[in-house]
Amino acid sequence: MPSMVVIATTAVPDHLRGALTRWTSEVLPGIFVGSVSARVRDELWSAVTETVTDGAALLIHPAPTEQGYALRTAGTRRRIPVDFEGLTLIRMAGPPKAKKLQSEF
């Protein structure tokens, strides 16, 4: 049975965006919404994770949890989903640390 999915992408290749529009509607740049079966959802997510490279992606789909949905993430991101006693919370990662310059004296 089809269920609603939301896929949010940032800095992904155009061909991935094109592939996602075959099954979903791009309602805003990088935000895809559709109603697909679990099999199609998993195949789409597989394509996203293989292609995301330096970008970021998030999949939200219905699940039998307290919140009623599950999150999946791929790629580089500052927001990291963390399970907290059955609830999915979002942890913000700090900015990347700058490399220290070493002098050669």
Rank of each mutant, 00 (worst) to 15 (best):
R78P: 09
G75F: 03
T51F: 01
Q102W: 12
K100P: 13
P62E: 08
M1G: 14
A93F: 13
V6P: 00
R39I: 11
M1I: 07
G68E: 06
M92K: 13
R79Q: 10
G34N: 14
W45Q: 02
V40Y: 01
L58Y: 04
D42P: 00
T51E: 05
R39L: 12
V82H: 15
T9L: 06
S37L: 06
R79P: 06
Y69T: 08
A63R: 09
R78D: 13
G18C: 06
V40T: 14
E26V: 08
R41Q: 07
P62L: 06
P13G: 05
V33M: 11
A11F: 04
L59Q: 03
E66G: 09
S3L: 09
R78W: 05
D83P: 07
G94F: 03
A56K: 00
L87M: 15
D83W: 15
V12D: 04
T76N: 07
M1D: 04
A19G: 09
V52A: 03
V82R: 14
W45T: 01
L58G: 02
E43P: 00
R72C: 06
V36R: 04
T9K: 00
E66D: 12
T9V: 15
T51V: 00
T49D: 01
V40P: 05
L44E: 01
T9H: 01
R77H: 09
I31D: 10
T53Q: 04
L58V: 12
L59N: 02
A8D: 04
L87Q: 13
M92S: 13
E85C: 15
Q67D: 12
E50F: 02
G55F: 00
D54L: 05
S25G: 09
T51K: 03
S103E: 09
R22T: 12
G55L: 01
A93T: 10
L44G: 00
V52W: 01
H15V: 14
S3M: 08
W23H: 15
Y69K: 09
R79K: 11
I80T: 15
L101Q: 13
E26K: 07
W23N: 10
I7C: 04
F84R: 13
M1L: 08
L87C: 05
T73Q: 05
T49V: 12
G94P: 09
I90N: 13
A70I: 02
T21E: 11
T21D: 08
G75H: 02
Q67W: 00
R91E: 12
M92C: 07
A56Q: 04
A57S: 06
F84P: 01
K100Y: 12
T53H: 02
A56R: 05
V6Y: 02
M4W: 07
G30M: 02
W45H: 03
K99E: 13
M92Y: 11
A63S: 13
G68I: 03
H15W: 15
T53E: 04
P13R: 05
G18T: 08
T88L: 14
G86R: 06
V52N: 00
K100M: 13
T88W: 07
A11S: 11
V52T: 04
P95L: 15
T53W: 02
D54N: 03
Q67K: 07
E43Q: 04
H61M: 12
A70L: 06
T10F: 07
S103L: 12
F105W: 05
M92F: 12
S103K: 10
L20G: 05
L16D: 06
S35W: 14
P81E: 11
G86Q: 13
G94N: 12
E43C: 05
T73I: 14
V12P: 05
T65M: 10
L101T: 14
P95C: 08
S25V: 14
